[in-house]
Design a binder for these strands. Sequence first.
DNA 1: GTGGTTGCAAAGACTTTGCATTGTT
DNA 2: AACAATGCAAAGTCTTTGCAACCAC
Lengths: 157, 157
Amino acid sequence: MAKATRSTNDAFARFKAYLREQKLKSTAQRDAIVEVFLDSAGHASVEELYGRVRKRHPGIGYATVYRTMKLLTECGVADERHFRNGEARYEMAEKSHHDHLICERCGKIVEFEERRIENLQEETARRLGFELRGHKMELYGICQDCARARRSSAAKN
Amino acid sequence: MAKATRSTNDAFARFKAYLREQKLKSTAQRDAIVEVFLDSAGHASVEELYGRVRKRHPGIGYATVYRTMKLLTECGVADERHFRNGEARYEMAEKSHHDHLICERCGKIVEFEERRIENLQEETARRLGFELRGHKMELYGICQDCARARRSSAAKN
DNA sequence: GTGGTTGCAAAGACTTTGCATTGTT
DNA sequence: AACAATGCAAAGTCTTTGCAACCAC
């Protein structure tokens, strides 16, 4: 079950408000998808969301998940991103200023925030004549656990 | 026609060497695709490459373009990247240390390099226990031309 | 001649859309 | 009752794969 934190409540409320504004309807399916998404701590793919929603709501179709995630993106609760293979993943939009550090071996995704980098991004854009609107940054590397695993397997050879 | 710069020559040679190593064959199609790619100043999509190669080599198929770009990626001449919509684009891998600034309005892509950002990325990864292997950074904004265009169209209203 | 390569078409993965039915308001 | 939402299947993208004909070595 979703633990209702401050931010998930806000997000849920924002989604509901968006539906009202746009004269769209609340449905059990939409609620279920949004709950699962908010519960998923970000970086959920459509496939993962579909899988989890299906447990709670077996009849649901892929199309509804896609459509709902599009709504969530429109209302600013979710952000759509494309990682290495081009498949879409969604994350909470709230945490606006964070980026990703991804382990190339185990796929672990760590979020981080580094204001100094963002300042330099702003400065760089300005230098090139752009008005900065957003950014995307992913660092790829090997995490501690995997580095350790590699060392011990190397030791065997 | 391709102006044969130092780096395109190197890249072409590297590709040829890779073919030899792997006991693969040189063909007119592969040569044409690689030339067009090297000529394209990076960020070419498969569709664009296909279109340009077709002028020179009308019978060519999409599959050959995909297969050749995969080879170019394997041998380290090209890098495959996914921008906002998940479609693959290829760029020269040589220029290892540069990132992208993309206009959200006209799609213009500007490359830049900012060593100070890279240093901070390295530091950040280390702080989080990662051994940094690579990164991807895209800044999104509005370019000068588009900002100007927006201002003048706003003036009409 | 051998074995990789090509172009085509078919198949795949991911996503969107059309439509009759169902559900909210 | 009106009209949006759903689920399904069909259609769309982008990419990969199977295969017979073909070509480089």
